[in-house]
């Protein structure tokens, strides 16, 4: 330490950036933040509109009454039948897709590991998840509506099931992969076979994550419209069982949005509020479950 501080010339290692580089830095930051803010605007606009428009007419009557005939002012007006129809068809979809999806997930995770067959099946399921929902609707129309010569909740539910299947499959596989191999080894070491190892050691530990996947699929299916318009169609009455045209919240919104009648437009907003509340509730519950599980 021969040199003292005083003998050194004023050395500034913090050389400022040149002006163009500084401008580039500030400019891009400003642009990126600006674009992000603009990208968030539609979300807030949609939420604001749905809450403000939807809450205006939200009442118990809307949730328990049937749609009133157009022009009848003094009759109770609502969409209880559509809520019930949506639940029915999502139920049909879940009862088709959950068993198949969970078994496929078990196959991919437990039996086929990294084999070529597993990769092929996983690839096909991934592609299936990106098939446009309207094409799935066309498929359900061709297989069920044309065969039974009847628009029905069954056809709509089947279409929803095809949409849910890849979501359930892929999330189940991910869930099972998170179970440590020591569980499987312990179970096998106790002399258990595949069946009991899978159902008594692996699945119970993956259950919260599997439920998450099913909920995610349910929230997606509940909001789907395109596969229902020409499979389940719609109706002004209560659902008449699985083999007749069935109303749903999403198709009701579609039909009432274009309607020339003000009260039907208003009802579309209220239905949108109810549907969005259901979808986001199920969606966020499922996210919370995963977050807890992963911790």
């Amino acid at each position: 330490m021969e040199l003292s501080d005083r003998e050194l010339p004023d050395l500034d290692l913090q050389q400022p950036l040149s002006l163009p580089r500084r401008l580039f830095e500030y400019g891009t930051t400003a642009i990126a933040l600006g674009l992000t803010v603009v990208a968030l605007l539609p979300l807030f606009a949609i939420f604001w509109q749905i809450v403000s428009q939807g809450l205006q007419h939200l009442s118990l009557e809307v949730l328990v009454a049937l749609p009133a005939p157009v022009g009848m002012e003094d009759q109770p007006n609502g969409f209880a039948n559509a809520i019930l129809g949506t639940m029915m068809m999502v139920g049909v979809g879940a009862s088709v897709s959950v068993p198949f999806g969970v078994m496929t997930g078990i196959f991919l995770s437990e039996f086929a590991g990294g084999t070529a067959i597993a990769n092929g099946i996983r690839f096909a399921v991934k592609i299936l998840s990106s098939v446009p929902s309207i094409v799935v609707g066309v498929f359900a129309y061709a297989t069920i509506v044309l065969a039974t010569k009847q628009f029905s909740a069954l056809a709509g539910g089947f279409a929803l099931g095809v949409i849910m299947l890849p979501i359930v499959t892929l999330t189940t596989e991910e869930a099972l992969k998170l179970v440590p191999d020591t569980y499987r080894l312990a179970s096998a070491g106790l002399g258990e076979g595949r069946f009991s190892t899978t159902f008594r050691a692996v699945i119970p530990n993956a259950l919260p994550a599997i439920v998450t996947g099913v909920l995610l699929a349910v929230s997606r299916a509940a909001g789907e419209t395109a596969p229902l318009i020409f499979t389940a169609l719609s109706s002004q009455n209560w659902p008449q069982g699985l083999l007749s045209p069935t109303p749903s919240l999403s198709v009701l919104i579609f039909n009432y949005a274009d309607s020339p009648y003000r009260e039907q437009n208003a009802l579309a907003w209220t239905a949108a509020f109810v549907l969005l509340a259901i979808v986001l509730l199920v969606n966020t519950i499922s996210r919370q479950v995963t977050r807890k599980h992963l911790k």
Partner: peptide, 12 residues
């Protein structure tokens, strides 16, 4: 945004 049903985005 991805979770909002497309029919609701259409209504908006």
């Amino acid at each position: 945004i991805a979770a909002i049903p497309s029919v609701i985005i259409g209504l908006w």
